[in-house]
Design a protein around this nucleic acid. Structure first.
Lengths: 225, 225
DNA sequence: CGCTATATTGATGGCGATCAACAAATGTGG
DNA sequence: CCACATTTGTTGATCGCCATCAATATAGCG
């Protein structure tokens, strides 16, 4: 059983950040977070809602999405263990967050974090670094959405997910084809066809829809450019 | 004639931020910037270059772009007077910056800014806010690139540029069709056709290729959704 | 002016969306 | 454990939007 105090051992946006080891531990300075459980496909917050908290993923996967009035959806990010999300400059959420799988989170009051930040420049610096990393990732995703074809997008997606999951050639996808499609700016049918094509090319092997063996990761990387 | 000291009257990312009035003036704390002039289509920095400075636009327009190995290009942002750009978490630029028009900039040493930040939490807070605003904008652009059709993209582009330019119905575009296309994930031909279609629909009037009269801004907004 | 860069317009084709049918996986109750 | 329902995924047929290729027009600029 997780408790809040066990979890607030520092802020980190993602694995990459963690690996770089650039984040100071702020134990004792960070206000205590509140543990939250969210069921599959349940909402963490919705677009337009007041933004009072930021969240850190303890376990599970969260999707961040925006909707057009007619229902078209764009997923801007998937967040996994260690990631933080929900930062807003004004007091409204400009995207919605939902649990892809059952999720455990810790919620922090944004006001409290900022208040702690007045005492500690390094805390705000860490938040800045987190946000800058998020910005860079989003810019890379712009290149994918603006200029890559369907096969390149799916290849890039597999590489991205592989970097975040367990090391090794077996990738467990937490999300359905529809979510992958909305992340990649495609339809679920096209995503399915590209999986089939990558399989036919011998780059991957499928064990059910969600378990992907990356047979030729080098080739996937080459294909994703 | 501009001097550096006249210009460093505070940091701001863009007009939106300026209008919100949320940025503290840091006069005296911010290390002096160096004024730079860059000619049309000249490079400010390139992808992969060491990132030692951040830049503030004094006048003109800068484009931030990424390239795929085969030359496909995605422009992630246009920056105009007051905007800042060039932030990086590590010490390399992950995109290139070029002058769309002749540009005047002020360059600040990133190290010096951070050092000043250890003295002033509010300076880092401002940098954080700047970055968060940039992140939100980029996420909105993801929705455009992932889910909007060509007409919606061009309508959205005109509305976006209109908000940044002089108030009023006459919009002066600083960039050629090719840059607009690479920003919107389209070809220049499609951009041109969509301008023609908006004209045929009576939403805009064209006075040369670069001067756009927004006849029915409400409709443009409706079309951009 | 004439040269070059930029923009428009037309003809055609391909990639991915859409519509549709089927298959597989997952879950439920008897 | 199996019949059945539901969700999720695959595969096929067709269509349409936008890219591509091509020709012409317009705008800057020496």
């Amino acid at each position: 059983m997780l408790t809040a105090t066990e979890e607030i051992s520092g802020l980190s946006y993602n694995h990459e950040a963690g690996q770089r080891g650039s984040f100071v531990e702020h134990r004792g300075l960070i206000p205590a977070g509140v543990p939250i459980s969210v069921g599959r496909n349940m909402e963490v917050f919705a677009e337009g809602e007041p933004a009072r908290h930021v969240y850190k993923v303890v376990s599970g996967v969260v999707r961040i999405s925006n909707l057009l009035p007619d229902g078209r959806r764009q997923i801007s990010a998937f967040h996994t263990a260690g990631d933080m999300f929900g930062f807003e400059t004004d007091d409204l959420h400009h995207a919605s967050a939902e649990a892809v799988t059952p999720v455990k989170l810790v919620a922090y009051k944004w006001q409290s974090l900022l208040q702690a930040g007045t005492q500690s420049a390094s805390l705000v610096r860490d938040l800045l670094t987190l946000t800058m990393i998020g910005l860079r990732r989003t810019q890379e995703h712009l290149l994918l959405l603006g200029r890559k074809n369907a096969l390149e997008r799916v290849a890039a997606f597999l590489i991205e997910m592989s970097k975040r999951g367990q090391p090794g050639p077996v990738l467990e996808l937490a999300m359905p084809r529809h979510d992958i499609a909305d992340y990649l700016g495609l339809t679920l049918e096209t995503v399915s066809r590209m999986f089939a094509e990558l399989k036919a090319l011998g780059a991957i092997r499928l064990d059910g829809a969600r378990r992907v063996h990356l047979i030729d990761e080098e080739r996937l990387i080459a294909m994703s450019a």
